[in-house]
């Protein structure tokens, strides 16, 4: 799109302003990460930088291990969520189902999103203990599948509905089976949707605290948000360690956003727009 010069100036100012406002708090994180605890609480603007927080975060608190756990849990869940979501989205969007059935499934999925997560925390704890996956990333993967599948199905359902019917008809004319249509036609066309749903699923799993804390107990499965909560103690809030953790916690998501850009941009609902 092209716009007149004045409008372009306005647009550019809006964007630059947005960038500045978004980045200021992030600058504060880096600043805090480099401050000694006593400098953080004295509130001055000047300080001498220190590596104290970075050393203790990765040394004493084994933050590296937590990052690995987070990565395994979030990406494991995301892969399964995408598989389940793509299949369900394909089935619900391409085939004809009774209206009540589709509505029932979509309503159930929305309901899962609306319930306070604590509702699932107790039952999942018992299930993971019984199945013997408690305190392993598998327990977290199980929980994140349940929590993140709804949004993924909602997104991918819309996407599969936007796939032109003629394409699918043509494939069937050529004698293609449904599963071939799914893998060779629908999946490639749904790539933007997969990217958006995958990013959201990854980020929300990555940032979850409630399940991470009830399904893990040691560094064997503990994830970053629990580690961060360990820094917010009763007698002292270890702001510096939290800042270091936050800075490093953002890296995987940041890389994903960078790489997923070209897919994500095609976005959530070309279906919705075309309807």
């Amino acid at each position: 799109m092209k716009a007149p010069r004045l409008d372009r100036l306005v647009i550019f100012s809006i964007l630059v302003f947005g960038v500045v406002v978004t980045l200021i708090p992030i600058v504060v994180v880096f600043r805090t990460a480099l401050q000694l605890p006593r400098d953080i609480i004295s509130g001055g603007l000047l300080f001498s930088p220190s590596l104290h927080n970075i050393q203790s975060t990765f040394g004493t608190y084994r933050f590296g291990r937590l990052m690995v756990n987070s990565l395994v849990s979030a990406s494991g869940a995301t892969v399964i969520v995408l598989a389940v979501g793509a299949l369900a989205g394909f089935s619900l969007g391409i085939f004809t189902w009774p209206r009540w059935w589709t509505a029932l499934i979509l309503a159930t999925l929305l309901m899962i999103q609306m319930l306070p997560p604590v509702v699932f925390a107790g039952p999942f704890y018992l299930i993971s203990r019984q199945v013997g996956i408690y305190n392993t990333p598998l327990a977290l993967i199980m929980a994140y599948i349940v929590l993140q599948t709804p949004l993924a199905v909602l997104i991918l359902h819309r996407f599969s509905r936007s796939i032109p019917g003629e394409l699918i008809e043509a494939a069937h004319m050529d004698g293609a089976r449904h599963h071939v249509v799914f893998t060779h036609i629908c999946l490639p066309l749904m790539t933007p949707g997969l990217a958006t749903a995958g990013l959201l699923s990854f980020v929300f799993s990555w940032n979850d605290f409630m399940f991470a804390v009830s399904l893990s107990s040691t560094t064997r499965a503990m994830t970053i948000p629990v580690g961060i909560a360990n820094f917010a103690q009763d007698f002292q809030i270890l702001y510096g360690n939290i800042a270091v953790a936050a800075a490093f916690a953002a890296i995987p998501g940041f890389l994903m956003v960078l790489f997923a850009q070209r897919y994500v941009t095609r976005g959530l609902t070309m279906g919705a727009v075309k309807e």
Binding site: A121, Y125, L126, R129, V213, V226, Q233, D234
Partner: peptide, 20 residues
């Protein structure tokens, strides 16, 4: 454990078939 999560974990563990 974070203090805020202590009760969650204790309640979970003490009401399970066997405490962890």
């Amino acid at each position: 454990s974070p203090y805020g999560a202590l009760l969650t974990r204790i309640t979970n563990s003490l009401t399970a078939p066997e405490s962890e």
